[in-house]
Design a protein around this nucleic acid. Structure first.
Lengths: 209, 209
DNA sequence: ACCACTTTGTTAAATAATTATCAATATATA
DNA sequence: TATATATTGATAATTATTTAACAAAGTGGT
């Protein structure tokens, strides 16, 4: 079904969600077709880059016509795996964990929040959006029982590696990590980091240039 | 004081916070000196890259010895502008805005939260960590009065560009943007984006490879 | 003070990413 | 149906980034 995809660079992969987003915007405006030239103008990319990127995955365009917006969006959605569902837990139910639990973009990408975990007895038992916060000691059983695919780490730096170890032990293969720490996990476990303070420091840097 | 820094690439700049973080870890462990070789081993970079990166800003090392951990950390902190203070406001006081307000890494990078703004009457008037949520119509005056340097946008996609326009109008030159939208601002305004859903989509992609 | 070893800063080489080019092919119009 | 125009996909050229190599300079032990 898919063409073989030999070593596509992360540079390309990280642009895919942006394409997906802009194609959604175009759809909302009722635009049904777009050329790489016009698409590039809107996104701030060169037309060449867009054609090059899309061609990593297949010839979605048509000469003399351009790209069909709806079709291309669906294709990219499938490439990104947005057509699947991922049973997800949040570990660390503090402010950030709760904000993520309430985050709507989350469900839109196919991630379904099934449970939350913490070590703080004050938090255990309460619910966020009908999702219960449980004791972290119940986590391993829950992951197996509820067929959890993804875990989101929202703990402080100190607890993060320990949580990661527990998750790996419980069979989790994908982690979205908000803790400011590079997690040590086996090669077959995927970690996608969101380093908020690093982003903030870059802002500080740019302000002083 | 600073040496002239001719066009340092964003690739280098985005690594600086990581150096800073690892140097902090080393300090906590009581390590006072480190070679590029060992530092590279710990961080997962080549020794060459570390020497190349650091040399963009100055010769911080010593032949036969390596780098002084404390000194190097301070130098990088200064390069990043962490020695300065930035008066900051949050616009959009929903779940994410409140989580960011409670985020500790924030103050550590020199960002001082002075106020929060929203359009929701239910939120206006309440306080998060002793910081009041105010009506967004009061924002422009507040920015001038309190000498605000930085604004954090935590609104939904729909309100983001309008908020950005108001911020630019009020003289703000640096924006940390969490809304899933590319903001249109004048060239002299810095925008650093945190695209959570894009990060999540990359995770989904990687899970399907 | 000497010598073997370490390690930097810098330059060169290699690799990766982006942009330009263009033949091939489709569209749109008369 | 013929023709001018638009646009892709692919390849080549260019630019950016990373890695390797090495002389110069310092360390540390004797």
């Amino acid at each position: 079904m898919d063409r073989i995809r030999p070593n596509i660079s992360m540079a390309v992969i990280r642009r895919l969600p942006k394409y997906y987003r802009y194609l959604g915007d175009l759809m909302e405006k009722g635009i049904t077709r777009i050329s790489s030239k016009e698409f590039g103008r809107i996104m701030g990319f060169t037309a060449s880059q867009i054609r090059q990127d899309l061609n990593c995955f297949g010839g979605f365009g048509q000469q003399g016509y351009g790209y069909n917006v709806k079709e291309l969006r669906e294709e990219i959605g499938n490439i990104l795996g947005l057509n699947r569902r991922y049973n997800t837990i949040i570990v660390g139910a503090g402010n950030l964990g709760q904000a993520i639990a309430n985050y709507s973009g989350f469900a839109e990408a196919g991630f379904i929040l099934k449970g939350m975990f913490d070590i703080n007895p004050r938090l255990i038992g309460i619910s966020i959006r009908a999702v219960k916060i449980m004791d972290i000691d119940e986590m391993k059983g829950f992951i197996a029982r509820e067929n959890i695919n993804v875990a989101i780490i929202c703990t402080p730096k100190e607890g993060a590696q320990d949580v990661a170890n527990r998750l790996v032990d419980a069979g989790i293969k994908a982690i979205w990590n908000f803790a400011p720490e590079d997690l040590n996990v086996p090669d077959d476990v995927i970690v996608e980091n969101v380093y908020l303070s690093e982003s903030l420091m870059v802002l500080a840097y740019l302000m002083n240039q």
